[in-house]
Nucleic acid binder design. Structure first.
Length: 302
DNA sequence: TAGGCGAGTATGAATGGCGG
DNA sequence: CCGCCATTCATACTCGCCTA
């Protein structure tokens, strides 16, 4: 069953991916980026499992909500007839020892116990649902998706689903008796409408147009060693091919993500794309795919 | 004499026509 | 499709004049 609300990469992850190939990230930023990437991969892996469910439920991924001025995020959630299950997906890897505040590891790189966060989300969601007039019971779980994760001395009765228990847990969920009606669709739509696309400001690495590497990257392998042959962009590393038009627009999207406040003009994109030496070609591509506003020197694309 | 105002000039980016 | 070139056009800049 496809999700009722699909997941997409967060803005932060998208920007980090672009920055990672166009500049040298500091060690901290690099680690932060890898964590984001890993977290996202974990969520996607869990999506595979929820989409396999046969039971009657709505899958709502990646909701950013707010209640009483407190915002909270639901990685993954399932709307059943009588219950609303939310899942915090963690892609931790390695061996840890349970602690109330931290999961400890001999290497000293401890990670925070996600339980408090989970309780907070659960409470906020319960209150939000109540304020919307819904009587659903909220259940909350932390899903440890990575098979290479072990947590020693885990107290019993925690809402933790460890990798070895994941299969049976999903089976149990699938047997939940549930029949959905119009009110559930309404609630799902309501929650989606409350979803905030602009997540709370998160610190991004410092970057500037001047210091970023310009050029078009290969759509397969992110390499900058691409050349233009006729209508196509050929990658010297992996041999990947892509229409120049498509490649330029892909680059424009990257530019927009990195510099949302800057105006898109032929010259800017010409410089940004590097390999395309004809300004006119850029201008044509932009004209075809975007809407031009203004005239002459002050024309820009939207 | 300093500051405000506006006409005239410079600028720089897109466009359209043309030949290849 | 591509590059070249003349043309166009909105705004920025300059500078002189008028007023307090």
């Amino acid at each position: 069953m496809p999700p009722y609300k699909a997941r997409s990469e967060s803005l932060i992850l998208k920007v980090l991916r672009i920055l990672n190939k166009r500049m040298k990230l500091t060690e901290d930023d690099q680690r932060y980026y890898q964590n984001q990437e890993k977290g996202f991969q974990g969520e996607v892996q869990f999506d595979v499992l929820t989409e396999k469910l046969q039971c009657s439920c709505h899958i709502l991924n990646d909701l950013q909500l707010e209640h009483n001025k407190s915002s909270f995020q639901l990685d993954s959630s399932l709307l059943f007839q009588e219950t609303y299950s939310l899942f915090d997906v963690k892609n931790f890897e390695g061996e840890y020892v349970y602690g109330d505040e931290y999961f400890k590891t001999p290497s000293g790189r401890d990670i925070q116990n996600p339980l408090d966060q989970l309780k907070r989300s659960k409470l906020l969601l319960s209150n939000l649902l109540q304020s919307l007039g819904s009587k659903l019971t909220v259940e909350a779980y932390v899903i440890f998706i990575n098979p290479q994760f072990t947590l020693y001395q885990t107290p019993p009765d925690l809402p933790f689903i460890l990798p070895t228990k994941l299969d049976s847990f999903m089976k149990k969920i699938d047997q939940k008796p549930s029949l959905l009606n119009k009110s559930h669709v309404n609630l799902a739509d309501k929650l989606i409408s409350l979803h905030q696309t602009v997540p709370p400001k998160i610190q991004l690495p410092n970057y500037s147009y001047e210091t970023l590497k310009k050029g078009v990257t290969c759509c397969n392998c992110d390499s900058f060693s691409v050349t233009i042959v006729g209508k196509k962009l050929i990658c010297g590393k992996c041999g990947g091919e892509e229409l120049v038009t498509v490649a330029v627009m892909r680059n424009v999207e990257e530019f927009k993500l990195l510099f949302p406040e800057r105006k898109i003009t032929t010259n800017v994109i010409h410089e940004w794309c590097g390999v395309v030496d004809s300004r006119k070609r850029i201008s044509r591509v932009l004209g075809k795919n975007l809407k031009i506003t203004g005239l002459g020197q002050w024309a820009f694309y939207k």
